[in-house]
Design a protein around this nucleic acid. Structure first.
Lengths: 123, 123
DNA sequence: ACAACTGTACTAATTCATATGATACAGTTA
DNA sequence: TAACTGTATCATATGAATTAGTACAGTTGT
C-alpha cells in the first residue's frame, strides 16, 4: 500500500506524511477508507511504531484523517480538508517563488519551468 | 554590513549563507570586494567564529567567494558562479512546483501566484 | 469470554546536526 | 614585531529525531 523508499534528509515521519497526503489528495485513497494500522506500517517499512504514530497525529491535526481509538484511522471527509491543504500548499509555493526571485531567476523563467513540468517534460 | 536578525528555524550558518548570497547576487557586493573577517562577523552577530567559518566554506564550495589564507575572503568573479547558482535555484524551484502539483494546485494557480508576487503584491 | 487487534501514552536511550568554546598554526600586513 | 587573516582540531553542550520497550483501554471476531 505505502510502497516507498525512505531517503536521507527529511525525517521519516515527514516523508511518510507526505506520501499519505499524496495518496489522499490524488484520490487513490477515498473518503472513510481505512488506513493500515500503526504497527502494520511500522513492520512494512521497518521503522518504529512511534514514528508512524507521529505521522498519524500530524495528519489528523491537518484534518486529512480521523482516528478512533481501538478501531482505526480513516481518510477524512474531503470537504473538511481540501481548502486548508490548498492554502498550505499555496503558502509553501509562494515562499519558493520569493526565494527564486531573490536568487536572480526571472518570473518568465519560473513560468516556463511550470509549463515544462506540468506538460510531463520532467519527473 | 551584514545587518540581520537571527531567527529560529534554520541553522545560523544557513541564514548567514543566504544573506551573503543575496548581497552578492543582487550586486550589493561587487566582484573582488573583500568580505568581513570571520572573527569580525562573529563579533557583530554574537555568534561563534566556527559558525561563520562554516558559512564561508560553503560559499566557497558554491563558487560565490574565494578565500586566501592570511589575506581574506573575496567575492568571486561573476562569470564563475552565475550559471551554477541559476541552476541551483531552478532545481529547487522545480521541486517546489512538483510538490505543489502533487498537492492539487493547478499550473494556472501557480502562474497567477508568480505574477502576484513579482508585481509587488506580496512581501 | 477470549484472543487479537486498535489508537494512544509514557519513559528511557540513542543518534545526529548544530553550535559553542578554546587553542593552535602559518602566512600577511602595517 | 604586533595584529590581523583563513584554517584546523579537539572537546563540550544542546535539542530534535528516532528507536525501544511497555502499558492501557476499547473494539472486533470467533
Amino acid at each position: 500500500m505505502f510502497s516507498m523508499r525512505l531517503q536521507g534528509g527529511a525525517p521519516i515521519y515527514e516523508q511518510l506524511e507526505q506520501r499519505i497526503t499524496e495518496l489522499i489528495l490524488s484520490g487513490e485513497m477515498t473518503e472513510n477508507e481505512k488506513l493500515p494500522a500503526v504497527r502494520e506500517i511500522a513492520k512494512q517499512l521497518s521503522i518504529n511504531p512511534n514514528t508512524v504514530q507521529k505521522t498519524y497525529a500530524n495528519l489528523e491535526a491537518r484534518g486529512l484523517i480521523y482516528s478512533i481509538p481501538a478501531k482505526g484511522s480513516y481518510v477524512a471527509h474531503r470537504g473538511d480538508y481540501l481548502e486548508r491543504i490548498r492554502n498550505e500548499s499555496m503558502k509553501t509555493f509562494s515562499e519558493a517563488v520569493k526565494t527564486a526571485l531573490k536568487q536572480g531567476l526571472t518570473s518568465k523563467e519560473l513560468h516556463e519551468a511550470i509549463d515544462k513540468i506540468s506538460n510531463g517534460k520532467e519527473e
